[in-house]
Design a protein around this nucleic acid. Sequence first.
DNA 1: AACCAAATTGCAACAATGTTGCGATATTAT
DNA 2: ATAATATCGCAACATTGTTGCAATTTGGTT
Lengths: 130, 130
Amino acid sequence: MKTTRNTTAKTAVLEIFGKSKTALSHTEIYKQIEDVCDRVTVYRILDRLVNDDIVHKIVDLDGTVKYAKCHHHAQRVHIHNHAHFSCEKCLEITCLENVKPSYIMPHNYKVNNINFTLSGLCPNCLNSNI
Amino acid sequence: MKTTRNTTAKTAVLEIFGKSKTALSHTEIYKQIEDVCDRVTVYRILDRLVNDDIVHKIVDLDGTVKYAKCHHHAQRVHIHNHAHFSCEKCLEITCLENVKPSYIMPHNYKVNNINFTLSGLCPNCLNSNI
DNA sequence: AACCAAATTGCAACAATGTTGCGATATTAT
DNA sequence: ATAATATCGCAACATTGTTGCAATTTGGTT
């Protein structure tokens, strides 16, 4: 039974997530705390946070990997079945907590997880695009 | 007006796509034709094929980038709105041409493209898992 | 408060993946 | 056949992520 510990670096990472409304890449996080810890440490912290279901991993259409804090509802089993929006202009990724796709699968597939990412223009960029 | 040319390498890549039922990564493709052309050339060919809508790019839940040949239907505008399945066991990615998610978006978003990837066990691995 | 086991970190080194510049080559239209 | 240019090969670089190991830090226990 591995116990997780609270370290300075982990706290710093969580604080960054708390302040951000959008998903963050490893690089974006590391830039904000490069005086606190090593690059590798950030990778390991992110791995642990994902494992502990505190953060979830998002991959956008281009293959960019980002992380966002999980908003736990009253669910027992924690599945990230909400959608993500990737803005083509500002490159920000946001969680669309309320957008959940419905679909019909062929038989003989066992679905454990889904990733539903939409791309285009976010409200901000759509308005400034006139 | 850039015209695209048919080269030996491009033909070789297309032949590989023709034979494969699943999506392929750059590495998988390159391994099959490393005597035909350079690694960089494969990257550039894939870029062009995506641009010309002959192949589409798929990113799975882990961030692995793969490519699959497009199956054009009678549509004018070519949008890849079908789902992809990523098997956790054999790691293969297949197109689920008939699975299309339905969803409701908030206002003020302009959606240009979607990526709907499901992961779990494919029929093959599900059967051999007993 | 000191101690101990184990989780975490830093560092260095490596690996995989993707990009760029540029001179050389191959393709296509005329 | 020729000319324009799309494509290629090579080398070099950039980014992202991983691994091993010794040193440090943490949380619980005495």
